[in-house]
């Protein structure tokens, strides 16, 4: 697989570390309670098709990336800097 890092350009996936679903960006507020955290930590949509996920360009620029990827075809649909996405949401 290859990912087009917004900073480094097109790179072999072997430079990246995969973390999991992009829902990890939406950490509940401290007071949200256990159920909210349980959902955050454990539950996953695990869709077939486009999946939003987090990759870390560990052997590259060390940017966390928000990647949309088709998990059936492994086609990369989009790659964005996670901090930009997060700030855009806020």
């Amino acid at each position: 697989m290859r990912l087009k890092c917004p900073l480094c350009g097109d790179r072999d996936a072997r430079e990246f570390h995969y973390r999991g679903a992009a829902k990890l960006m939406e950490r509940p507020e401290a007071g949200a309670g256990e159920a909210a955290f349980y959902d955050y930590v454990y539950l996953r949509e695990n869709p077939v098709g486009a999946n939003s996920e987090l990759w870390f360009h560990e052997l590259g620029c060390r940017a966390w990336l928000c990647v949309s990827r088709d998990v059936s075809s492994h086609e990369i649909l989009s790659v964005e800097l996670a901090d930009a996405v997060k700030r855009g949401q806020a």
Binding site: M1, A21, N46, R69, V71, H74
Partner: peptide, 13 residues
């Protein structure tokens, strides 16, 4: 392999 997948194939690394 280390990433979510429903494709029954892996990659080279």
């Amino acid at each position: 392999d280390g990433y979510n997948s429903y494709a029954q194939r892996g990659n080279l690394p």
